[in-house]
Design a protein around this nucleic acid. Structure first.
Lengths: 192, 192
DNA sequence: ACTCGATCCTAGCACTGCTAGACAAGCGAG
DNA sequence: CTCGCTTGTCTAGCAGTGCTAGGATCGAGT
């Protein structure tokens, strides 16, 4: 069975290569440039190979989104761990979130803007997505305030961050005032 | 010159027909279904006619977005006018905003999600967009709180609403808890 | 060494946004 | 009333998209 195991390993490696290449291409030239043809050429295989790994382009986007969710969760947790007061934890979380969105715009798009065919806020939501939300909940739950459901508070805070991230990146908000916006958001929403 | 005037009138009418049909089609079947072919068929002209009115599909989306911005501004102002306390004004504004996004998802997408080729937060931003932001500013500026720039406060509040609207509609947030989310947002952010 | 199944690629389909060039309709001039 | 000409419209087609059927090829197990 060693042969089969090797093939499966190689296959898994190729799948990772597809996802990594798609992500790289999207970050460099935007998701519009991630055509199945160009992606196939970059991984040095023909188009149909992509479809032996994924149902279609949507699933490739979804795979990038899952990868991004795991990274974002880690980034948020790392940022939070360096702060000691609840106020600083929330501020660090907000900055880490917006920073991630700014540095990985294509991944952020894959997660929230594009259709990756992923289920959200559901029982069959993929684990990385649930965990990313959990990472937010861990720090935000403690500042929800009396009588406010931590989950609900996290949703609202997250929505505010998401709004700032998308509107800024789409040119709807001038980018220079990000820091005061974060300050305002944290000061008002979090009960410290 | 009467002949030319008539022609210009007819041409303007056809342009309105294009925008209205695109919007209708998008609301019914989503923007993916708004292909230039189908749109042309619906208005009972051939494809190139579309390109004699707009540079391309982007500009058609942009036209829908401008129409939507005007309507949203009106909806917000109408909702606000019925409330007397600042607290109620802000709450009414928030509900009107989210209500508009929910009832006109395709228009909302044209405004904020899709690329309509419009300039934002810029000097050559089209008037309807500036006015829509002004409509928000009128009611939100008064509850910004001491020492907080009204424009900055409006941006943050708007971003929060935008986040709630998009995440809810994309299935990222369960739709039933919209009202408590609005309550939380208004209670915390607005200084009344 | 050979068979046969897994794996991959070539070629192509239906569709997209967009455009060149042929064609017809309707205007103003004689 | 007729004739040229501008203006407007349509047919046909291009290049590119996601996706797939079917044949070629390669390699593992007998």
């Amino acid at each position: 069975m060693s042969v089969q195991e090797r093939k499966e390993r190689e296959r898994a490696a190729r799948e990772r290569l597809i996802v990594a290449t798609a992500r790289e291409l999207a970050e460099q030239q935007g998701w519009d440039a991630v055509t199945t043809r160009l992606l196939a050429e970059r991984i040095e295989y023909s188009q149909p190979v992509l479809y032996s790994h994924f149902r279609g382009k949507r699933e490739i986007i979804g795979a990038v989104a899952l990868e991004g969710a795991a990274e974002m969760a880690a980034a948020v947790r790392a940022a939070v761990s360096g702060a000691n007061s609840p106020r600083e934890r929330v501020a660090a979380l907000a900055r880490a979130y917006l920073d991630f969105a700014e540095r990985n715009p294509a991944v952020y798009d894959a997660m929230f803007q594009l259709d990756g065919g992923l289920a959200f806020a559901d029982e069959d939501t993929p684990a990385p997505l649930k965990d990313a939300f959990a990472a937010l909940l861990e720090s935000l739950g403690e500042v929800a305030g009396d009588g406010v459901h931590p989950g609900l508070f996290t949703e609202v805070f997250w929505a505010a961050l998401h709004g700032l991230a998308t509107l800024t990146r789409a040119g709807r908000l001038p980018p220079q005032d990000t820091e005061p916006r974060v300050e305002l958001l944290v000061d008002r929403l979090a009960m410290v």
